[in-house]
Simulated assay, not measured.
Amino acid sequence: MTAFDLTGKLAWVTGAGKGLGRAIAEALAEAGASLAITSRTGEDLDRLAADLGTAHVLPGSVSEPGFADDCVADIVRHFGRLDILVTAAGISPSFRRSEDSTDEDWAQVVDVNLTGTYYSARAAGRRMLEQGSGSIITVSSVHARTGFDRIAAYAASKGGVEALSRVLAVEWAPRGVRVNVLAPGYFHTDLSAGLVAGKWSERLLANIPQNRVAAPPELGAAAVYLASDAAGYTTGSTLTVDGGWTA
């Protein structure tokens, strides 16, 4: 067994139906973890479960009060423990200029990306604190620390995720629970398709020293590291996977 081996661990991945969430779920499974997977779209979860061979499917929205608590209760009933949480559930902005965006635009993005992350981390953290161990990985974005046009709600929500994660890391470190942030740059996913393939692509690439948009599996190994014993002394950190953008 290596320090990166997740055999015997139970991982819950939100937003696992597609994109980066799916890629992270696949990487954790390849490293040996058993999986519970959440997405708003049950069909996406069923496809992932079929591709993986097995996974515990928990469809629903992390932004709904009580949903995360119900998920953790269900996971514990089935598996007896919860070792890893990855909060990959997220939605894209309306891509309107800030002065033209609506209250509904703001609320929808913040409810899923920030409030949903808090609900999920709080529910998982309660169980992990009882166990005295666990790894929580919140998913932020390069835009938690870099500006761009028409993404005010998205950037604010991801900045909030990073601040929240630092607080949880400090609170829970003495009781055995690690909390870290995974901050991806631009990857080829449905969420970013309108940017990376459209008129904004040239501007995006100009900000990326590696001069390319990444493939989702390139994020998986970073999640495995943060989830594993190899990161045993890593908490309150942000691991940025962005081709050099923030540098």
Rank of each mutant, 00 (worst) to 15 (best):
T2A: 08
L6T: 10
L10A: 04
A11Q: 09
T14S: 14
T14Q: 00
T14H: 07
G15C: 11
A16P: 00
G17V: 05
G17Q: 02
K18P: 00
G19H: 03
G19W: 06
G19M: 03
I24R: 00
I24L: 06
A25Q: 01
L28V: 03
A29V: 05
G32R: 00
G32Q: 10
S34M: 11
L35M: 08
T38P: 10
S39R: 09
G42L: 12
A49E: 09
A49Y: 04
A49G: 06
A49N: 05
T54M: 08
A55L: 10
H56F: 15
E64L: 11
P65H: 07
G66V: 14
G66M: 14
G66F: 12
F67M: 09
A68S: 15
C71K: 07
V72F: 09
A73V: 11
V76D: 03
R81A: 05
V86Y: 05
V86P: 00
T87I: 14
T87G: 06
T87F: 13
G90H: 11
I91E: 02
P93N: 12
F95W: 10
F95S: 02
S98P: 05
D100V: 03
T102S: 13
W106F: 14
W106M: 07
A107T: 14
V109M: 10
V110Q: 11
D111A: 15
N113Y: 01
T117G: 06
Y118P: 06
Y119G: 03
R122Q: 14
R122C: 07
A124E: 13
G125C: 13
G125V: 03
R126Y: 08
E130T: 10
E130G: 06
Q131E: 13
Q131K: 11
G132I: 15
G132A: 10
S133R: 14
G134R: 12
T138G: 08
T138Y: 07
V139H: 07
S140A: 15
S141T: 04
H143K: 11
R145K: 14
G147C: 10
D149R: 14
D149I: 12
I151R: 08
I151K: 04
I151T: 05
A152S: 11
Y154E: 04
A155H: 06
G159Q: 06
A163D: 06
S165M: 11
R166D: 01
R166L: 12
V167R: 08
A169H: 05
V170W: 06
A173C: 02
R175N: 08
G176T: 12
G176Q: 12
V177M: 01
V181I: 13
P184R: 09
F187T: 03
H188A: 13
H188F: 08
D190P: 07
S192Y: 05
A193G: 00
V196K: 01
K199W: 02
W200S: 05
R203G: 04
R203M: 03
L204W: 02
L204V: 04
L205I: 03
N207Y: 07
N211S: 12
V213I: 15
A214Y: 12
P216S: 02
P216Q: 01
G220V: 09
A221R: 14
A223G: 08
D229E: 15
D229C: 04
A231P: 07
G232M: 02
G236S: 01
S237K: 03
T238N: 01
T240A: 09
V241Y: 00
V241E: 00
D242M: 13
G243W: 00
W245V: 13
T246L: 15
